[in-house]
């Protein structure tokens, strides 16, 4: 408990310092924070233009599609804000030698890596996701009940954890290979599939995005649940899957750390 408190206050301090630096370059902060909005806007406008001319996409209306898109974007933004530094483990810490610094400090090195850089670019994603989901609640008359809000928070946190865990697993390969970014990117970019209803794809892709690279658990199933479509226990699958993936990711991290202790590179 004392440890948890200590880490929480440390994270807060890291975050504060980070914002002090960001505020020094205010224009860049604003551009960065809003940057992802522009990229999301391109996809969203495409959906908007197309859906203006057809009533539904495999039974999904535009509001429902935006709900799926919004849930995914919220989950992604959690990863983007709090765990973006994982991407840089290889090229900014291990290879230049800065990772050694983490190992001579009396705190958890993974915590140190994550706390070292809060990524403000994720704020834009968060806002886009939030607006889409809130818009969905309004337009689709989903009640703002305590249960629904709690479910939403749970789904976003679990979905964010799935993103973080998958990035952690692929980034830990930096302990062995020169450049892990392509590996991480290869897995990460599959999340594009899950911005749209999984049932528009063939069965194989649907299964892959649910069980193999389970980004679908962060968007398609929670959206279905909130929209009152029956997906059974799959509405809750993101929680145990996130827990298992996080545990596996941390195990793999420790294994990578052990390897690093053997080779120092």
């Amino acid at each position: 408990m004392r440890k948890l408190k200590r880490y929480a206050s440390l994270y807060w301090l890291f975050l504060l310092q980070r914002f002090k630096v960001l505020m020094e370059y205010r224009v860049n902060f604003l551009i960065g924070a809003s940057s992802t909005i522009f990229i999301q806007a391109a996809s969203l406008m495409t959906v908007w233009v197309v859906m203006g001319q057809v009533p539904s996409l495999n039974g999904w209306t535009i509001d429902e599609i935006f709900m799926i898109y919004g849930l995914l974007t919220l989950a992604k933004s959690i990863n983007h804000m709090f765990a973006d530094n994982l991407w840089t483990l290889g090229h900014e810490y291990i290879r230049p030698g800065g990772f050694d610094r983490f190992l001579v400090r009396p705190i958890n090195p993974l915590f140190h890596l994550l706390a070292d850089r809060f990524c403000h670019d994720g704020i834009g994603n968060f806002l886009v996701g939030l607006v889409l989901v809130m818009r969905g609640f309004e337009n689709l008359s989903i009640p703002w009940s305590l249960g629904n809000i709690a479910y939403l928070v749970l789904a976003v946190l679990a979905g964010g954890s799935i993103f973080i865990a998958l990035n952690l697993i692929t980034c830990v390969t930096s302990f062995w290979i020169m450049n892990s970014v392509p590996v991480t990117l290869a897995v990460f970019q599959t999340h594009e599939f899950t911005k749209y209803p999984l049932n528009i794809y063939g069965k194989m892709i649907g299964v892959a995005m649910t069980w193999l690279i389970p980004y679908g658990l962060a968007s398609y199933y929670p959206a279905s649940y909130l929209l009152g479509r029956d997906v059974g226990y799959m509405a809750w699958a993101m929680v145990p899957v996130a827990a298992v993936l996080l545990a596996a990711g941390y195990r793999f991290w420790l294994f990578g750390l052990k390897h690093y202790g053997g080779t120092g590179s």
């Binding site: 050694d100 001579v104 202790g261 053997g262 120092g264």
Partner: peptide
Amino acid sequence: TTIKMLTGILA
């Protein structure tokens, strides 16, 4: 390498 073992970075 010695320093890294003394500081605990390497096993």
